[in-house]
Amino acid sequence: MPVVAPAMPLQGESARPGVSLHDELLVALRDYIVEGHLADGARVPERQLCERFGISRTPLREALKVLAAEGLIDLLPNRGARIRELGSEELRELFDVMGGLEALAGRLACERISDAEVAEIERVHHDMYRFYLRREMHGYFQCNQAIHRMIVEAAANAALSATYASFAGRIRRVRYSANLAKERDRWGEAMREHEMILDALRRRAGNELSDILFLHLRNKRKAAQAEASA
């Protein structure tokens, strides 16, 4: 079974220098939702979350506003918030768009990426593989998402980066859960696809990387849909 890191109460001061309590709460709350601790369509239990993270409702609600802007939750007028639930058609459309964006990012990245950037992606890839071998989904997914972001950043296109960021949050939860699909070893498939991604990136094979990334997102969407209908 995959190992999921538990949510921990936040301290009075951030444990990480230069990171505000707001940002630390945002990361912890985002991970808590992405990792499926609350069901699709469920109301966000504000009191329970305040107790879990050791905070008051004011910082929690500020964090929820950010997550609503990212597309993870829906804010309900005078009724709190609920976990965003994606319909099958919306899911298909979002993954098609993300596949196109990542395909373009891969092609541009191969034209512009530096050796140092490739080396950093390779380092994170090896960290991700170690998490995969230990079946630690939390660490694996953090590395996985970092690699996708670094490829987009290496494309050096501000409009592409902004568009990508506006869509990424809306399917982050689904991308996580797709790795847990019971009907197929999607996690293993994803790891093998990432080996192909890294190989194409090393060779600066733009068209090949573009095709791999598009297929990677298409396979992720199919696994997510299969898991949702199981």
Rank of each mutant, 00 (worst) to 15 (best):
P2S: 03
A5N: 09
P6F: 13
A7N: 05
M8L: 14
P9N: 13
L10M: 14
L10S: 02
G12W: 12
P17Q: 12
V19Y: 00
S20N: 11
S20D: 03
H22N: 14
V27F: 15
V27Q: 09
V27I: 11
L29T: 08
L29R: 09
L29M: 13
R30N: 04
I33Q: 04
E35A: 01
E35T: 09
G36D: 08
G36S: 07
L38H: 13
A39Y: 07
G41R: 05
R43D: 14
P45D: 10
E46I: 00
R47A: 15
R47W: 11
L49Q: 13
C50P: 00
C50W: 03
G54Q: 01
G54A: 04
I55G: 08
R57M: 12
L64E: 13
V66H: 13
A69G: 12
L72C: 08
R79L: 14
R82A: 12
I83S: 01
R84S: 10
L86E: 08
L86A: 03
G87I: 14
E89Q: 07
R92K: 13
E93M: 11
F95G: 09
D96Q: 11
D96T: 15
V97K: 07
V97R: 10
G99L: 09
L101P: 08
L101G: 00
A103T: 00
R107H: 01
L108W: 02
A109H: 12
A109V: 15
E111Q: 10
R112I: 08
D115Y: 09
A116N: 04
E117L: 09
I121A: 12
H125R: 10
H125P: 08
D127Q: 12
D127K: 06
R134V: 11
E136D: 10
E136C: 05
M137Q: 07
G139D: 06
G139Y: 14
F141R: 01
A146K: 11
A146S: 12
H148F: 08
R149P: 01
R149Y: 10
M150V: 04
V152C: 04
V152R: 07
N157T: 12
A162P: 09
Y164L: 05
Y164V: 06
A165P: 00
F167A: 03
A168M: 05
I171E: 04
R173S: 01
R173G: 02
R175T: 12
L180D: 00
R184Y: 10
E189W: 02
R192H: 01
E195W: 05
L201R: 02
L201C: 00
R202H: 03
R202V: 15
R204E: 07
A205H: 07
G206C: 04
S210N: 06
F214Q: 02
L215E: 07
L217A: 07
L217V: 10
K222F: 05
A223G: 07
Q225P: 00
Q225S: 07
A226V: 06
S229L: 09
S229V: 03
A230I: 02
